Simulated scan of single mutants.
Amino acid sequence: MPGTEEYITRMIHKHSDMVLRLALASVRNMADAQDICQDVFIRLYKHQPEFSDPEHERAWLIRVTVNRSRDMLRSPWRRRVASTSPPQLPITREEDRDVVEAVLRLPAKYRMVIHLYYFESYSTSEIAEMLGSKESTVRTQLRRARDQLKTMIGGMGDEAIF
């Protein structure tokens, strides 16, 4: 039942990794990503939306995460303070770490679509709806992001990267 402690706990266990990864892909700072993750679940508790199915639930969490990430990136504090350390990535395989680090070096608009497409398995039309963009814009951003990743990683094909 939405709003209960058990429900919120279940939602946190089910979706916190996805929310944290998405926030980290956006803000590139683990402390800020953790703040966003916490804020997303506080909003879930406060608003207690009713979801029609698990996909609606997941899409709502992604939309709130995207919005909170954008808010944080636009904040005056963030503009004045620069992060001095790269994010600590909980990844054990070295080749996976290289790919994720390359994705994190992309501009924000490309990081978000790459993450949603490859790591969360959303289609370009679903991503466009979540981000409030046109589907053609998302496809263009994916293509440009792939081109930049190829250059960063050393000219590998799409199959080798993802």
Rank of each mutant, 00 (worst) to 15 (best):
A31F: 14
S16M: 11
E95H: 14
H13R: 03
F41R: 09
V81W: 02
M72N: 03
E101P: 04
R111F: 02
R111V: 05
P76W: 03
E55L: 05
P107C: 14
T65V: 04
L131N: 00
R70D: 06
D53A: 07
Y7W: 14
N29R: 11
Q38I: 08
E6L: 09
L149Q: 00
R68E: 01
E5K: 11
R97T: 09
R10Y: 02
S136N: 07
A23W: 03
E129D: 06
T9R: 14
W60F: 06
S69C: 02
R68N: 02
I36H: 05
R58A: 07
W60E: 00
D71T: 03
V100L: 12
S121P: 00
D147G: 13
D96A: 08
Q148I: 15
R70M: 10
D98P: 03
S121Q: 08
P54L: 12
E55S: 09
D39Y: 10
E6T: 09
R105M: 05
R10K: 13
I161P: 11
V100C: 11
Q148F: 07
S125P: 00
V81M: 11
F51M: 04
E126A: 06
R43I: 10
R93S: 14
I62D: 04
H15R: 01
I12D: 05
R143I: 15
A59R: 15
V138L: 10
R146L: 15
P2E: 08
Q48N: 13
L44M: 13
Y117S: 09
S123Q: 12
V27S: 05
I114E: 02
P90R: 12
S133P: 00
N29D: 09
R70A: 13
A145I: 04
Q88H: 00
E5N: 05
Y45P: 00
P76I: 01
K46V: 15
R146M: 15
R97N: 14
S69L: 00
I127A: 06
W60R: 04
R144C: 11
M156Y: 15
R43K: 10
